[in-house]
Design a protein around this nucleic acid. Structure first.
Lengths: 222, 222
DNA sequence: AAAAATCTGTTGCAATTGCAACACGGGAGG
DNA sequence: CCTCCCGTGTTGCAATTGCAACAGATTTTT
């Protein structure tokens, strides 16, 4: 992908983008599979956009156990959420999963008013804010789902959210395999399967492939 | 609290703040207990800071069930996370719990470059980004905790996070009552109590009042 | 086309958790 | 001082969930 097409620069025309890339002193680098792209003990002012390839954000807890916090595909942005406060906390790293092309920008370059006062500067800030708010929304949705006490409630809450976001007329669709869904819901796969089957038998839910439909308003399901 | 002292204006001196309040066309209003402060179907560009009093962010789900998403005390900011994408989604409202003083600013006023090009303008943007990233961090922590499968794991994960954030030398402290903690962990209170007692008996945990200490590295706890 | 890998669907059994009920203690307020 | 309210701590029992194991279906690789 061309650096000019990245989401931070959305809504800005190409020539302005090129001007900004130099105005921002943006740095474009290539990483090979397995290479460390960024280490949070390093530079807290750096922000990255994945232009091509796939990376992961991993975290090592106090016992050294590695867990994947987030998968970063093309157009993913990182270094926005964890730099300020979390830097003291245990090691978070960005690691390349395939060959990656990454653009780095200093956050301070974005927030400061440049002398040339390029109009598009404020568009970038808006884009950044938009990205962060979308992120916060998806985190909140996840919390809403995980807050539910039973698998049935988790599942229905998750499906409701998907349903609400589906445009009218389109059939709501689960974006995962059942196995992946069980990871998202943080429950055992076969227990999830059991619940799905039960809800289908009770007529609360219909699923074919990944398309589904929720029947609501029927109180008391046994 | 004076409008000049709010977190959006942190690090900016008073006279500049006053100038900005007019530059931003900021609006300061008072609400009485129970009054609706903001409705997300309204104006998606508005952002609010609670200057005094307490409010709550509530959400009505598809069945009309009301749940509290967030408690907003003095210095809380709202309208930042949910405006862009979530506005279509089911009704989110901000409601005054006590008498409240609220400052409203348009987000577009913050992101745009004003002609007067006040230096402090970019400081406000930085503050806003900082607030959002802190928010994202705390949401992520919550998810990390809720992702754990058992009450024991949830508890230990939660306490570890608190421990990591506690400055060296200070005793880590749970910021809730046990009852409130069970709400945060989304588990049954008495089941949580049972686990706490068990961990204390096994020597994994010591608690007195709200101060606690975790003993790690002892593999195999039964 | 065969083999391997991955996902779906099911079930018995054991472990965890929720629920309800009760006892105790401290703080607020009459 | 007494009462009410709220948080803590405990326990038996029922419901939910995790785990393991297996079979069939589907997809990917060789």
């Amino acid at each position: 992908m061309l650096p000019e097409d990245n989401i931070l620069f959305k809504g800005i025309d190409q020539s302005d983008c090129r001007r900004m890339i130099s105005c921002f002193n943006a740095d474009i680098k290539t990483f090979r599979t397995g290479q460390k792209i960024m280490d949070y003990s390093d530079n807290p002012d750096k922000l990255g956009v994945v232009l091509s390839g796939t990376a992961v954000m991993v975290r090592y807890d106090i016992n050294g156990v590695r867990s994947i916090m987030e998968s970063l595909d093309e157009q993913s942005i990182f270094g926005v959420y964890f730099t300020f406060t979390a830097s003291q906390r245990s090691g978070i790293e960005i690691v390349a999963e395939t060959e990656c092309n990454v653009m780095f920008v200093k956050r301070s370059e974005i927030t400061k008013r440049c002398e040339k006062a390029c109009q598009c500067h404020s568009k970038v800030v808006e884009n950044l804010l938009q990205l962060m708010s979308e992120k916060a929304i998806s985190l909140n949705e996840r919390i809403e789902v995980l807050s539910q006490r039973t698998i049935e409630e988790k599942l229905i809450s998750c499906l409701s959210i998907i349903e609400e976001k589906t445009p009218n007329g389109k059939a709501p669709q689960i974006p995962f395999s059942t196995t992946a869904l069980s990871d998202y819901l943080c429950v055992n796969r076969s227990a999830l399967q059991r619940e799905i089957t039960r809800l289908k038998n009770n007529g609360v839910l219909t699923i074919s492939k990944r398309k589904f439909k929720l029947m609501r308003n029927r109180d008391s399901d046994n």
